[in-house]
């Protein structure tokens, strides 16, 4: 395992900007999650680190060495592809053995067997080891694809939405499993997702990408509580942060144009009157849809509430976040 650092990486495809001046440091043993919508440059970042793409400018340092001109093999990284990329003509076992058979590693047969069995056990695919890769379900393929990375001991694991094709139950199980493996191995992982729960639960650091730029980089709590921009604030939190013109409540700092209200920033009981337009019972929480001066607000309330649709309740901000007209944070 090793430190990985991107310095001012820029990459464009034809005329589209893929990444723009991205700098990012992943320390040894960290679990870094890149969060962002489709096209934000998450996968491009992984491919650049893996060596499958070459940056237009900037440097990539792995373990104290600039690897921009190295081949993927020289970089010693393991990648889990979103589209599985299994070797279709090989069995699951052969797929898992493939990286170990690299002449660079020269793995003895018994070690190889043990590693493959261990990984298969963890990912619960032991019973499928002798199946052909094409005879698996999507979820199984994805696990084999992860297994192919985990059998190795690379400098960094690069994972491109590895859980996206799994069902909810398996996804939450593997999320915990992956976190456990990472802690056990002390592995360095760069993980790409658009799922905020994955990001919040697994990451030691989160990087939020927007249109090829790294908007903010920091621990999950900090990203959630202290977002640097309106964009970052909307990426985390469920229900989403509500943004309203500051004029509605007043008391805003100079230069701010928008007020950002997460459910925990909304105090119910006093302040501005608004109407309850809808109530969603989600079991562990109740979502209130409110209408205030022509704006929609979604917030949470406790599960034993007596509030009904059509009621008028008063709300007021409690420690909200302010943004200027461009969406930047105002402190």
């Amino acid at each position: 395992m090793a430190d990985v650092e991107l310095r001012n990486i820029t990459k464009s495809f034809d005329k589209d900007i893929g990444l723009e001046k991205v700098s990012l440091k992943i320390n040894d043993g960290e679990f870094v999650v890149l969060l962002g919508p489709t096209g934000a440059g998450k996968t491009t970042t992984l491919r650049l680190i893996a060596g499958l793409e070459k940056p237009d400018s900037g440097e990539i340092w792995i373990d104290g060495r600039n690897v921009v001109n190295d081949s993927p093999a020289q970089r010693d990284v393991a990648m889990v592809f979103q589209q599985y990329s299994l070797y279709p003509h090989l069995t699951v076992r052969e797929n898992l053995e493939f990286p170990l058979k690299s002449p660079i590693l020269k793995t003895p047969v018994d070690v190889m067997k043990r590693k493959v069995n261990d990984v298969a056990e963890v990912l619960r695919i032991s019973h499928k080891l002798d199946n052909k890769a094409t005879e698996l379900s999507g979820g199984e393929m994805q696990r084999v694809s992860m297994g192919r990375a985990l059998v190795r001991n690379p400098r960094i694991y690069l994972m491109d939405e590895p859980l996206s094709s799994l069902d909810a139950k398996l996804r939450s199980e593997l999320r915990i499993e992956l976190k456990r493996i990472q802690a056990e191995l002390g592995a360095t992982i760069l993980y790409v997702t658009h799922d905020q729960i994955e990001a919040m639960t697994m990451a030691t650091q989160i990087g939020v990408l927007n249109n090829g730029r790294l908007e903010q980089f920091g621990p999950p709590r900090e990203i959630y509580e202290n977002p640097s921009s309106q964009y970052v604030a909307t990426r985390l939190g469920s229900p989403r942060i509500n943004t309203l013109p500051v004029s509605i409540f007043g008391g805003a700092p100079a230069g701010s144009a928008l007020i950002g209200l997460r459910p925990e920033h909304i105090h119910i009981g006093s302040g501005q009157d608004c109407q309850v337009t809808r109530i969603e019972h989600l079991g562990d929480q109740i979502r209130l849809h409110l209408r205030l001066a022509g704006h929609n607000i979604i917030t949470l309330t406790d599960t034993h509430t007596s509030i009904k649709v059509g009621d008028v309740i008063a709300i007021q901000p409690n420690n909200p976040i302010f943004f200027d007209a461009n969406g930047s944070r105002v402190v």
């Binding site: 990284v77 393991a78 990648m79 592809f81 990329s85």
Partner: peptide, 15 residues
Amino acid sequence: IPDNIYEAAECDRAS
């Protein structure tokens, strides 16, 4: 043969 299989092999350090 999809490109990404070669890319996977590239990452798996196959010559």
